[in-house]
Design a protein around this nucleic acid. Structure first.
Lengths: 352, 352
DNA sequence: CTGTTAGCGCATTCAA
DNA sequence: TTGAATGCGCTAACAG
């Protein structure tokens, strides 16, 4: 039936252990012996049995990557970067690690379920990307789960997510984005241009990313003594449609907004469409800003003013840390700042 | 140390076999017994050992998804859809299945490597998305590998990729996009508007998707007696930058093009940027068309005329077929047509 | 450097 | 409906 290690050993006239050593390349093996083994492997077209290997070694070569939505480039870029760094050194089909991408859809239950599934697989590492759900019960459950994973030898890295609460501290490394600072920069840019009446399209409630970006916005308002009118904030999903509808809603509530601050670039695109469909010009009538600087943002017309997050770099770094190939930042936490990209979608307000 | 099946069995006062049966839900177990077992599982916080389970059962709950680039929404959307369909009941131990996303970057070697890795994991199914590399040696190698996977019980589905050559026929189901038809539609739309001098920005050579779309374009030209000037075709990667540069190159070669046909939407965006930077207006001076209808395409200004591919539907269907939850199309092959979306980026040529 | 010996934790016969 | 026994294929001590 299927070829096993023993078959290879027999053909190469060595013991199974030796074959294993050659395949894993972790022990010294005589060159001639290795040669013989590899030839046998080739001749028999042998493929290692992953599960058996994982069982015996008590660790697998799977790396879990949790994302909210893999169809969203924000996550796709990070996932791709992580995956590019988890491969091992071994050129041969040894040393390679597989990325298990888990789409949580932002659901706490699914997040937990996937974490359990990854625990079941004895994943070598787990990287959680993007904002966390802000729900104490859930946060605790996740932290507990992460601690258990860590205890079982799974390296845990948070990428673009704030550090988990205490119980997980010990193990989990966190690369977090400075969403608050980015939010502040964007709104300050607008204030600097002269804007005072700005609408804010926030992401879903109970999400750290949503809250931090919004807080940055409010920080900027407060710093400049601008009243924060609650009617100017609307919550919605992180997608184009939400941006479109939220913008219409904002316009309905207050017709003389001079700027719209969107929770991210995708939402901003929806906002632009809504403004355009409402007969408003960008930035002449209304300025728009996004967040993330996804690849398509520069191609919007006018190009989107936004905050660039180094998603690929962050993902790559998370991947290396997950593989123990990069030093853990001091305190296990690193804050990654965004960079304000001023482009055509923002200008001085109409009256100015 | 770690809790095992035996521990649960001891606590529930049953045999390990019974616990296994409860967990897999495939055998009849008395309700009261099941109750007791589940309670023990909970109390001990037991998590099944995936590798052990996979070893014993000779099959895992992993599903491989091969993509060229997970950061590209084209693949992200399909991957997400596939993943959403591979869970569900009918499965073992919880019924959940994990998606192993493999980024090949379009490299034949990596494609083969990942296929081997998936084979090693005893993956329950493998879905290959996107166009294939057109290289006889490689195609044969892949086909051989797919056959082996199929023989080992792994279900193989191609999604957005033409059927593999003969050796794999037997097992692999293929959901292929009608790239040729889509390409033809786009160019015919342009010809209908009066265009005669069209530049074509193709994807990388040796890719089925590239070839089919280009052939569709040429079919349309031929059908209307328009000469196919080789100087009007430029090859490049499937990204924005390639579109930008290829467009500049086309403009350099021939200054009076009235339209640019891009290999896909991403490339089209780059083309739009290049045209704009060259002082040309879309569609007044030059019309532009893309392919795929990715989410951002409708937000381009002007909105992109393109061919919509039902990526999510196709992915979902591929996922269901991979799980044996949907009937295989007759002959194992289904062709999925795209839909022409006429939008603002195309208009009558300048002279007309 | 290489072989021998034990399990890793679970699913599944076969009996009962 | 349940239990006892067997082995899935491999790795990791421990010798030699």
């Amino acid at each position: 039936m299927t070829v096993t290690l023993a078959d290879v050993a027999a053909r190469a006239q060595v013991s199974p252990a030796t074959v294993s050593r050659v395949l894993n390349g972790n022990y010294p093996v005589a060159a001639s012996t290795r040669e013989r083994v590899l030839r046998a492997v080739d001749e028999l077209d042998y493929v290692l049995n992953g599960p058996a290997s994982a069982l015996a070694a008590a660790t697998s070569d799977l790396v879990g990557i949790l994302v909210n939505d893999i169809a969203d480039p924000f996550f796709g870029i990070m996932a791709g970067a992580i995956q590019s760094e988890i491969g091992g050194p071994g050129g041969r089909a040894g040393g390679e690690r597989l990325a298990v991408v888990c789409n949580t859809g932002g659901s706490p239950e699914r997040e937990l379920t996937y974490l359990t599934l990854l625990q079941r697989q004895r994943a070598a590492a787990v990287v959680l990307t993007g904002g966390a759900v802000e729900n104490t019960a859930h946060a605790t459950a996740v932290a507990t789960k992460l601690r258990k994973l860590g205890e079982a030898g799974t390296r845990v890295v948070l990428c673009g997510r704030p550090p988990a609460p205490a119980p997980a501290d010990a193990d989990a490394v966190a690369l977090t984005f400075d969403n608050r600072g980015g939010g502040r920069q964007l709104t300050e840019h607008l204030i600097g241009l002269g804007h005072r009446r700005m609408g804010y399209i926030a992401g879903p409630e109970e999400r750290t990313t949503t809250r931090h970006r919004l807080e940055g916005h409010r920080d900027a308002l407060a710093a400049h003594g601008i009243a924060d009118d609650p009617a100017r904030t609307v919550h919605g999903r992180y997608d184009r449609r939400a941006g479109y509808e939220a913008t219409l809603e904002l316009l309905r509530r207050e017709t003389d907004l001079t700027a719209v601050v969107a929770a991210n670039d995708t939402v901003a695109l929806g906002a632009c469409a809504a403004l355009r469909d409402s007969g408003l010009r960008i930035p002449d009538d209304v300025s728009v800003v996004g967040f993330d600087d996804l690849p398509f943002s520069i191609d919007a017309v006018p190009a989107l003013t936004t905050v660039r997050l180094p998603l690929a770099d962050a993902g790559a770094r998370a991947g290396r840390i997950a593989m123990g190939r990069e030093e853990v930042p001091p305190g296990g936490i690193a804050t990654i700042r965004g960079e304000l990209m001023v482009r055509g979608s923002t200008g001085v307000p109409k009256g100015a």
